[in-house]
Lab assay of single mutants.
Amino acid sequence: HSLRVHINGKDFEVHNADEHVIRALEELIRRGADADELKEFLERWKG
């Protein structure tokens, strides 16, 4: 899957995101994670 996440006016393109990554991202958003947390998660995932 390809996923586009809009954080703090920046678009993050997440390519080849598997279900696990997408679910983790949705969980963060549901918990009310702020932009920094989401960005950190995506950067860690992209490795």
Score class of each variant (00 low, 15 high):
18 D>T: 12
19 E>N: 07
39 K>S: 13
15 H>T: 10
16 N>W: 05
29 I>T: 03
46 K>A: 14
41 F>C: 05
42 L>P: 00
40 E>D: 13
18 D>E: 10
42 L>T: 04
1 H>I: 15
28 L>V: 04
46 K>S: 14
34 D>I: 05
45 W>H: 14
10 K>T: 09
43 E>H: 08
44 R>K: 13
1 H>V: 15
20 H>Q: 11
21 V>D: 04
30 R>T: 11
18 D>C: 05
7 I>Y: 03
26 E>R: 08
13 E>G: 01
28 L>D: 00
35 A>K: 03
24 A>T: 07
22 I>V: 09
21 V>S: 04
41 F>G: 01
22 I>R: 04
37 E>P: 01
8 N>I: 01
16 N>T: 08
5 V>Q: 01
35 A>D: 08
33 A>C: 09
9 G>A: 01
32 G>R: 05
45 W>I: 14
43 E>R: 07
15 H>W: 05
11 D>H: 14
16 N>G: 11
34 D>T: 12
15 H>C: 04
3 L>K: 14
17 A>K: 04
2 S>M: 15
14 V>D: 00
8 N>C: 04
18 D>K: 05
30 R>P: 01
31 R>A: 11
23 R>H: 12
42 L>M: 09
12 F>K: 00
36 D>V: 08
46 K>N: 14
2 S>T: 14
26 E>L: 13
2 S>I: 15
24 A>C: 06
47 G>N: 13
8 N>K: 06
30 R>H: 10
11 D>Q: 08
19 E>Q: 11
8 N>H: 05
6 H>Y: 02
20 H>G: 10
28 L>S: 02
23 R>Q: 09
1 H>W: 00
20 H>P: 09
30 R>C: 11
22 I>E: 03
10 K>A: 06
9 G>D: 02
19 E>D: 09
36 D>F: 06
18 D>R: 03
47 G>T: 13
22 I>K: 04
36 D>P: 06
2 S>H: 15
16 N>V: 06
32 G>Y: 05
35 A>Y: 14
10 K>S: 05
11 D>L: 15
29 I>N: 02
42 L>F: 07
34 D>K: 07
33 A>H: 06
25 L>C: 03
40 E>L: 10
45 W>G: 11
10 K>C: 03
25 L>F: 06
46 K>E: 14
14 V>M: 04
7 I>K: 00
21 V>A: 05
36 D>L: 08
5 V>S: 01
27 E>L: 05
3 L>G: 13
47 G>Q: 14
6 H>G: 02
29 I>V: 08
15 H>S: 08
19 E>Y: 09
18 D>I: 03
14 V>E: 01
35 A>Q: 06
1 H>Y: 00
21 V>R: 02
39 K>D: 08
45 W>E: 11
28 L>M: 13
17 A>H: 03
7 I>P: 00
31 R>C: 06
33 A>Y: 11
19 E>I: 14
38 L>A: 03
7 I>W: 02
39 K>N: 13
37 E>S: 10
35 A>R: 04
11 D>G: 04
31 R>S: 11
1 H>S: 15
46 K>L: 14
20 H>M: 11
41 F>H: 06
9 G>H: 01
40 E>H: 10
41 F>D: 01
10 K>E: 12
13 E>I: 13
5 V>D: 01
5 V>L: 07
6 H>V: 13
20 H>A: 13
7 I>E: 01
4 R>H: 15
4 R>I: 15
45 W>K: 07
32 G>T: 03
26 E>D: 07
38 L>F: 11
3 L>T: 15
23 R>I: 09
5 V>G: 01
29 I>A: 05
1 H>R: 15
40 E>G: 10
40 E>N: 09
38 L>C: 03
30 R>A: 13
41 F>T: 06
47 G>H: 12
24 A>Y: 09
1 H>C: 15
3 L>A: 13
9 G>L: 00
12 F>Q: 01
27 E>S: 10
9 G>M: 01
37 E>K: 10
23 R>A: 10
30 R>F: 11
42 L>R: 01
44 R>S: 12
38 L>V: 09
19 E>G: 06
45 W>P: 09
16 N>K: 04
30 R>N: 11
6 H>Q: 11
23 R>D: 05
7 I>S: 01
41 F>S: 04
36 D>H: 09
15 H>A: 06
43 E>D: 12
24 A>F: 08
14 V>P: 00
10 K>M: 09
18 D>Q: 08
24 A>V: 08
24 A>I: 10
2 S>A: 12
17 A>G: 04
11 D>S: 11
42 L>G: 01
9 G>F: 00
24 A>H: 13
29 I>S: 03
11 D>E: 13
12 F>C: 02
26 E>T: 11
33 A>R: 04
12 F>P: 00
12 F>S: 00
30 R>V: 11
16 N>H: 10
15 H>R: 08
43 E>V: 07
29 I>D: 02
37 E>I: 10
22 I>T: 03
37 E>W: 05
4 R>E: 15
47 G>V: 12
29 I>F: 08
32 G>L: 05
40 E>F: 07
6 H>M: 06
23 R>P: 02
28 L>Q: 06
40 E>K: 10
4 R>S: 15
35 A>H: 09
21 V>I: 12
5 V>F: 05
7 I>R: 01
12 F>E: 01
3 L>P: 13
3 L>D: 15
37 E>C: 08
30 R>I: 11
43 E>L: 09
8 N>R: 04
44 R>Y: 10
9 G>K: 00
32 G>H: 07
29 I>M: 08
41 F>R: 02
24 A>D: 09
23 R>M: 10
45 W>Q: 12
40 E>T: 10
9 G>P: 00
9 G>T: 00
7 I>Q: 01
23 R>C: 07
7 I>T: 01
38 L>T: 02
15 H>L: 08
6 H>T: 14
44 R>I: 07
45 W>Y: 13
34 D>Y: 05
6 H>S: 14
20 H>R: 11
26 E>H: 06
7 I>H: 02
26 E>V: 13
17 A>P: 08
42 L>D: 01
3 L>Y: 05
26 E>I: 14
45 W>R: 12
23 R>S: 07
29 I>L: 09
3 L>H: 14
11 D>I: 15
38 L>P: 00
24 A>E: 11
25 L>G: 00
14 V>C: 02
12 F>G: 00
13 E>S: 04
12 F>A: 00
19 E>M: 10
37 E>M: 13
20 H>F: 09
1 H>G: 15
27 E>G: 09
39 K>M: 15
16 N>L: 06
4 R>Q: 15
46 K>W: 14
15 H>G: 03
42 L>S: 02
23 R>L: 10
41 F>L: 07
25 L>H: 01
20 H>K: 12
